[in-house]
């Protein structure tokens, strides 16, 4: 008797969802909770230690899959990985100068905020701006991905990574401003 649950299927299939950038977040959440309802170690608190170990592994995998697919950037990077694009291919990608200049401007704005008279409003504004840019890149990614245009998909992915990093820095500053 040998058999063990298939931990190698892709994250979309794990949730019974089509491999696609478009995703229904509510449906993903509902399926996630249903799966955890079956696999979580709490369901195996009285089971054999083998079953408990198995449950921890499965439950951890479902958590990992959920975290990956939940956010657009994670999903995009994962789709690239499934398509055989490596981290290396990504880091070799040349970004256009226009985008880099725009990034530098956003970064300068961020650095200037603590000195402003009304830093709270300024940070709100900047967060909106970054989020807008992010959404534009998400749309660009989806179009490129659906059209099998790997070059543009990579480009959108890399830009999303830049913007995401900037967003977390801006959020950290926001946190500092709130905490006073």
């Amino acid at each position: 008797m040998t058999s063990s649950p298939d931990l190698t299927q892709d994250y979309f299939s794990l949730f019974g969802l089509p491999v696609s950038f478009a995703i229904d977040r509510d449906e993903l959440g509902a399926r996630y909770r249903r799966l955890q309802g079956e696999l979580h170690p709490d369901r195996y608190a009285n089971a054999s230690s083998y079953e408990q170990r198995l449950a921890v592994q499965h439950s951890a995998l479902v958590n990992q899959a959920y975290q990956t697919l939940r956010k657009p950037l994670g999903r995009a990077l994962y789709l690239m990985e499934l398509g055989g694009v490596s981290q290396n291919d990504m880091s070799r990608h040349q970004i256009d100068g226009g985008f880099l200049i725009m990034q530098m401007e956003l970064r300068e704005k961020l650095e200037a905020i603590p000195e402003l008279m009304e830093p709270d409003e300024a940070i709100e504004h900047l967060l909106d701006e970054i989020n807008q840019d992010l959404r534009a890149e998400q749309r660009a990614f989806e179009q490129a991905y659906n059209g099998n245009d790997t070059e543009h998909a990579i480009s959108a992915c890399v830009k999303m990574q830049y913007l995401d990093k900037l967003l977390s820095e801006a959020e950290r500053l926001e946190a500092k401003l709130i905490d006073g």
Binding site: P5, D6, G16, L17, I23, D24, E51, K71, E142
Partner: peptide, 24 residues
Amino acid sequence: RMDKSIHEALAGVAVDTLAEKVGE
């Protein structure tokens, strides 16, 4: 059994009923 649980957890939800929504 664990494998079966996974399938049961998702059984009855048809993939094509999913709304097509982009991003969040």
